[in-house]
Amino acid sequence: ETFPLDVLVNTAAEDLPRGVDPSRKENFLSDEDFKAVFGMTRSAFANLPLWKQQNLKKEKGLF
C-alpha cells in the first residue's frame, strides 16, 4: 500500500495512516514519488550506508 507524499512528510507517528511504520515511511511512497523525493531508485537508496539513508530521510521530512 502506498500513500501520497503529503500524508507522510513531517507527520508524527500517531497521525500516520494505520499500518505505516514511522521508521520506514519511505517504503510507503509510490515508486514515482520515491524517485522524485530522493532522486534515485529504491535499490540505489538501499545500497547507501545507513547513516546516509537516515540523513536523506531527515532532509526530506521522512524521518
Rank of each mutant, 00 (worst) to 15 (best):
D21T: 05
N10Q: 10
K35F: 15
S30N: 10
Q54V: 14
L62H: 05
A44P: 00
F34A: 00
L29F: 03
S23L: 15
A36Y: 12
V9N: 07
L8Q: 04
D15G: 11
E14F: 01
R42G: 01
L62W: 10
N55P: 00
K58C: 14
F28T: 04
A36I: 13
F28H: 13
P17Y: 02
L48C: 02
Q54H: 10
K60G: 02
W51S: 09
N27H: 12
F28V: 04
V37G: 00
N10R: 11
D21C: 09
F45Y: 04
L50Y: 13
W51G: 08
G61W: 03
V9Y: 05
R24F: 14
D6E: 14
F63P: 07
L48Y: 02
W51R: 07
L48P: 00
Q54K: 11
R18I: 14
L16D: 04
V9A: 10
P22K: 05
S43E: 14
L62Q: 05
E1N: 12
F34W: 02
D21I: 07
F3Q: 06
E59G: 04
G61K: 03
R18P: 15
A12R: 14
D31Y: 02
S23E: 14
G61P: 02
E32F: 09
E32H: 10
Q53Y: 00
S23G: 13
K25T: 11
D15K: 12
W51Q: 08
A46G: 11
A36N: 12
E32Y: 10
N27P: 03
T41W: 02
S23V: 10
T41R: 02
R18T: 13
L5R: 06
S30R: 05
D6Q: 09
L62T: 02
R42M: 05
N47W: 06
F45I: 00
V37P: 00
G19A: 10
L50H: 13
L48M: 10
D6C: 12
E32I: 11
S23W: 11
D31I: 05
K57D: 01
L56Y: 04
P49N: 01
D33P: 00
G61Y: 03
N10E: 07
N27G: 06
F3I: 07
P49A: 03
E14T: 09
G61R: 02
G61N: 06
F45T: 00
M40Y: 05
F34H: 00
S30G: 05
N55K: 14
Q54E: 13
S43R: 11
P17R: 04
R24N: 10
A13W: 11
A13K: 10
K58V: 11
E59V: 08
S30C: 06
F38T: 01
L8P: 05
R24Q: 10
V7N: 06
K25P: 08
F63S: 15
D33L: 05
A46W: 08
L48F: 03
A46N: 13
F45M: 01
A46R: 11
Q54P: 00
E32C: 07
F45N: 00
L5S: 03
S23K: 14
V9Q: 15
E59M: 09
E59K: 09
D31R: 02
M40C: 06
L5G: 04
D6S: 13
M40Q: 01
R42Q: 06
T41Y: 02
L16E: 04
E1G: 12
P22A: 11
L56H: 02
L5P: 07
F38M: 08
V20P: 04
V20M: 06
T2F: 15
D21F: 04
T41N: 10
A13C: 15
A13L: 14
E1H: 13
T41Q: 06
R24H: 15
D33T: 07
N47A: 14
E59I: 09
P4E: 07
S30H: 03
G19Y: 08
L56G: 00
F45R: 00
P22F: 03
D15L: 15
A36M: 14
E14Y: 01
R42W: 02
E26C: 06
R42N: 02
V7A: 08
A12Y: 06
F34I: 01
E32Q: 11
F3T: 04
A13M: 12
E32W: 08
D6H: 15
N55S: 14
T41D: 13
K60W: 03
L16C: 08
E14R: 11
D21Y: 03
T11A: 12
D15A: 10
S30E: 02
T2G: 08
V20K: 04
R24D: 04
A13F: 12
M40A: 00
G19W: 11
Q54M: 13
F28A: 08
